[in-house]
């Protein structure tokens, strides 16, 4: 009985956390492609971002150079440098760019990190096989918030 009560309590807590999270399909973008509200309902943790921005998660530096992450090797040249991003953009704009850059820049090559539909032949990660639907977004709501929090620290010198 005691155990059952604990389980129920844990489920309620988990449910409360999920209730504050905005699902990919429910994200509201402004006309310019920004997202005002935190996707996870919690503040981002900038210290978690370097790992997310490396290979295996977001792999942001595959395409973007970031001086603050220069201890991670091989930064790409496909997208613009992220140095000073926190001075060029607001938090809401950065959140929109990470979640779905195409809402800001139509036709952008940048993958959408918080989007789960509208793809052509989506695959099961990097197996080459068909995806098991529904897809998970490339980053979780909290990972997006962590990256946004980190980008906000990248101010012009």
């Amino acid at each position: 009985m005691q155990l059952k009560k604990l389980t129920v309590a844990a489920m309620l807590i988990a449910g409360a956390a999920a209730a504050n999270e905005i699902a990919p399909a429910d994200v509201v973008f402004t006309e310019d492609g920004a997202i005002e509200a935190s996707l996870s309902g919690s503040p981002g943790v900038a210290e978690n971002a370097p790992e997310i921005m490396n290979k295996g998660a977001g792999n942001c530096i595959a395409c973007h150079q970031v001086t603050a992450l220069s201890d991670i090797p091989f930064h790409g040249e496909v997208g613009p440098s992220l140095d000073g991003a926190g001075s060029r953009w607001t938090e809401a704009e950065l959140r929109g760019l990470v979640a779905n850059a195409k809402m800001t820049f139509e036709g952008s090559m940048m993958p959408s990190f918080y989007k789960i539909d509208g793809f052509t032949r989506p695959g099961d990660a990097y197996t080459g096989k068909a995806a098991k639907l529904p897809l998970d977004p490339l980053l979780t709501a909290q990972q997006v918030e962590d990256v946004v929090a980190f980008l906000m620290t990248l101010k012009d010198q």
Binding site: M109, T120, P122
Partner: peptide
Amino acid sequence: YTRFGQLDLSCANCHEDNYDNMIRADHL
């Protein structure tokens, strides 16, 4: 020119629009 997959990339995104650029450690 069709953008495929969850990364939503076409052949052209990398090999027409970005050849000569580095993508991570690869020279496109």
